[in-house]
């Protein structure tokens, strides 16, 4: 399969925007579905985004310090 899976910011409710505070995995890492991928922060809350699928983390789109809105592309898994 060469279809890439997109990792997007989940719906966190009324939250308008988050900041990426830490990537817990690196580009090139092999990951399992449900692994902790990155942490985002909004209003004093850290939220852990999990891998939606197993594979290899091929591209990090939103880097540490970047802001993201709901459904924005964060990374790609192959």
């Amino acid at each position: 399969m060469d279809e890439r899976t997109e990792v997007r910011l989940p719906d966190l409710g009324e939250v308008e925007e988050v900041t990426v505070t830490a990537w817990l995995r690196q580009e090139g890492d092999t990951i399992e579905e449900g692994d902790d991928l990155l942490e985002v922060e909004t209003e004093k809350t850290t939220f852990v985004v999990e891998a939606p699928q197993s594979g290899r983390l091929v591209r990090i789109v939103k880097k540490q310090g970047d802001r993201a809105r709901r459904d924005e592309l964060l990374a790609e898994i192959d």
């Binding site: 966190l12 409710g13 939250v15 209003e43």
Partner: peptide, 9 residues
């Protein structure tokens, strides 16, 4: 609780 971080705070 409605999956809403803001509502929680």
């Amino acid at each position: 609780q409605g999956r809403d971080l803001r509502r929680y705070i």
